[in-house]
Design a protein around this nucleic acid. Structure first.
Lengths: 203, 203
DNA sequence: GTCTATAACAGGATAGAC
DNA sequence: GTCTATCCTGTTATAGAC
């Protein structure tokens, strides 16, 4: 009982790392048991099945990483500041966990039909409050009239995609890990600027 | 011998479709044989192994879809026109094959260490000619001084990522397939505008 | 709660008949 | 070139001893 929570956590941690690193399909429960330093059977004891372990991990990852972002979208920040902060926080989050994008996209592709994961992922995506803000400011004329869906897709694309093609970027430009970090750091300024420029009323 | 080329092609086609649809790891050689309407053993007869079949298909897909794009980058089009056309052609290509993005990204994640695939994918990415054009026009002052790598990553992100999260976009906005198409169609105008605005010399 | 042992099966690949 | 039959390995999952 002393080890109860401990073992469960070790399995959870090892599996999380492996799922992110190698992908769910290429990770066997033996891999997980080895990495966690526990017995093969314990995975089933604590998590019933690999699929169930995966669901648990996936929900946890999404929840952990989306809460801050949703809070920003729903805050009463001025629009441009909101965008700047959203981009900043999102990029920092992905810098800490660069494999997250590929992972979520693999799941998105893998479970196109499965409701559970879709619902979870959908929660990552925009919010009522933000959409309304875009539309109302468009009516007021403080920004150009902008399709909120297009804007949000632009924003997500510019934030997330570079992490998905990290290998490619590093390889093509012979970037060291530090150089890649600097490249990403620069995007914290660049991306909000682009987005904001696209909605400036002047034209 | 009459059926020679034919059978090989049937295997190739069936496997391509399945790899794109379900991913390489979740596609078994039995699936491929079934879909192709041929015998299990014939896959090995023609392609030696599943891995080799995959390599063949992958190279073919990359080559088929990258040639037009590279030609545009290397053409002597005026910069803004080049960007407009690149975006246009790329988006059309992905509209015809929306699963391509997820597929390539899965491979990118899966084979971070493998040279062969990396080399192939790298060829998708920018060109000398384009990079030079950006730098020289920056020096001339006809555009703002722009990091070609950042610009290219912006461009790829805005073009490709929406296809990777197609399910998410459709789900969240309750888009029909036609509405999604219209959404993407709109991006053929929107994306070049954003990119070009970001490099206009004024500001 | 933790272990060993094993069931039950799916996967890729090949030998050999035709 | 195409088929059947089969091998072998690796996989998830569980029964049952401790």
């Amino acid at each position: 009982m002393a080890k109860n929570r401990n073992t469960e956590q070790k399995i959870f941690d090892a599996a999380t790392e492996l799922f992110l690193e190698k992908g769910v399909d290429r990770t066997s429960v033996r891999d997980i048991a080895n990495k966690a330093g526990i017995n093969l059977a314990l995975m089933n004891y604590y998590f019933r099945s690999k699929e169930n372990l995966f669901d648990t991990i996936f929900s946890s990852l999404v929840k952990k990483n989306s809460e801050d972002l949703i809070r920003i979208l729903n805050s009463d920040l001025e629009l441009y500041d909101k965008i700047r902060q959203y981009v900043h926080v999102y990029i920092d989050m992905l810098s800490d966990n660069p494999l997250l994008v590929s992972f979520v996209m693999a799941i998105l592709h893998r479970s196109r039909e499965r409701i559970t994961e879709m619902k979870a992922i959908t929660s990552l995506y925009s919010t009522e409050a933000f959409t309304k803000q875009i539309i109302e400011e468009g009516k007021k004329g403080s920004i150009r009239r902008t399709d909120p869906t297009q804007l949000f897709v632009d924003m997500l694309s510019l934030i997330a995609f570079p992490f998905a093609i990290k290998t490619l970027i590093r390889d093509k430009n012979s970037f060291s890990e530090e150089e890649f970090q600097a490249f990403i750091e620069e995007r914290k300024r660049r991306v909000p600027k682009m987005l904001i420029d696209s909605m400036r009323p002047c034209s």
